[in-house]
Structure formats: C-alpha cells, structure tokens
C-alpha cells in the first residue's frame, strides 16, 4: 500500500512539475506547482516526517502559492510569447547536461551503496520542537523571525507605489 502510494505520488509530482515548466499560461503553472507540492507532502509523510509534510501543505501550498496566485491576478498576466528567451534552449541544454552528470554520479553512488537496515527514526512534531528550541538551533530560529520581518518590510517598501 505504501509503495503504491509512494510511486503514485512521485509520478504525480513529476507530471505536475512538467506542467509547471511546460505551460505558457503562468496560472496553469501555478496550479501545477501546487499539485507538485502536495504530492511531495505525501512523500514526506511516507518518509516518516509528518511535521515537514504538514508544513509543506500549510506554508508552501498554502501561503507561498497563494502569494504567487495573488500577484498573478494583481498583474493580470497574459500568456507569454511563443519562443523561449535569448539562448534559452542552448543554455537549458547545457544545464540539463550538467544536472544529468550529477544524476549519473549520484546514481553510481546510490547503486553501489548497500541499503542497510533503516535506523530508528522519530521525526514527530514534539521531537522537532525539542530540537528547534534546543540551544543548538534556538538563535538561528530567532534569527529567521528577524529575516521574515525584514522580508515583510522589504516587500512592502518595494511594492509601494510611490517611493
């Protein structure tokens, strides 16, 4: 059952990712991205990370994507021109080649790696909270709140009509 779910979710993620980059209308891209994010959330859950899975839906699929859609509506974006931009195909080919190189190397490592017994793993929300609020990460955690605040102020300042 888990395997079926995993591969179904993986396939869905790949297909919707293709939709994200293949569609000319950014609204469709955005919906495709939402599907990708949600299916990734399923995979996170299957990998034993309920906290990240929940965050993926709430923060990513919820907050961030709503922001994207909001901007798309606000700017009333039409579909873009047909051809990719200057040198897009060539550069894209080089980029894919580079990533393929990476995939090949990673595959080689993974194939050789013996799948050992899965270690005991507890990524419950309680454990996550204990780690995030431990002295090791507490200050980083607090720093992210300042980062968010700064981003908030920055976004307001940038998007204001007259500055």
């Amino acid at each position: 059952m888990d395997q079926v779910l995993f591969y179904a979710a993986a396939a869905l993620a790949l297909v919707s990712a293709l939709v994200v980059i293949g569609q000319k209308n950014p609204i469709y891209s955005a919906f495709g991205l939402i599907v990708t994010l949600c299916s990734l959330s399923v995979i996170f859950g299957l990998l034993g990370s309920p906290f990240i899975a929940a965050l993926q839906v709430i923060v990513y699929a919820g907050a961030i994507m709503v922001l994207f859609l909001f901007v798309l509506m606000l700017l009333n974006v039409r579909s873009e021109q047909d051809a990719p931009g200057r040198g897009g195909r060539t550069l894209g080919a080089i980029a894919v080649a580079l990533v393929a190189l990476l995939v090949a190397q990673a595959g080689a490592v993974l194939v050789r790696a013996e799948p050992g017994p899965a270690p005991a793993f507890d990524a419950s929300t309680q454990r996550m909270a204990e780690i995030l609020f431990s002295p090791q990460f507490l200050y980083v955690f607090e720093a992210t709140s300042i980062l968010i605040l700064a981003a908030l102020v920055g976004a307001i300042a940038l998007a204001k009509k007259d500055f």
Binding site: A17, F68, L75, E80, P84, G85, G88, A106, L110
Partner: peptide, 28 residues
C-alpha cells in the same frame, strides 16, 4: 524509498532548472 526519493529530487531539481532557462515570464 530513500534511493528513489533522491532520484526524484534530482529530477525535480533538473526540471526546475530547465524551467528557469526556458521560461520568459518572471513569475514562472
């Protein structure tokens, strides 16, 4: 699962990269 998840992650990363190169819309 772990192996295949890593491969899926590489695939998503590659697709994302491709999107950055091929698309002209800033939001995309």
């Amino acid at each position: 699962f772990v192996h295949h998840a890593v491969l899926l992650s590489l695939a998503l990363f590659g697709l994302g990269t491709l999107g950055v190169f091929l698309r002209r819309n800033v939001i995309t």
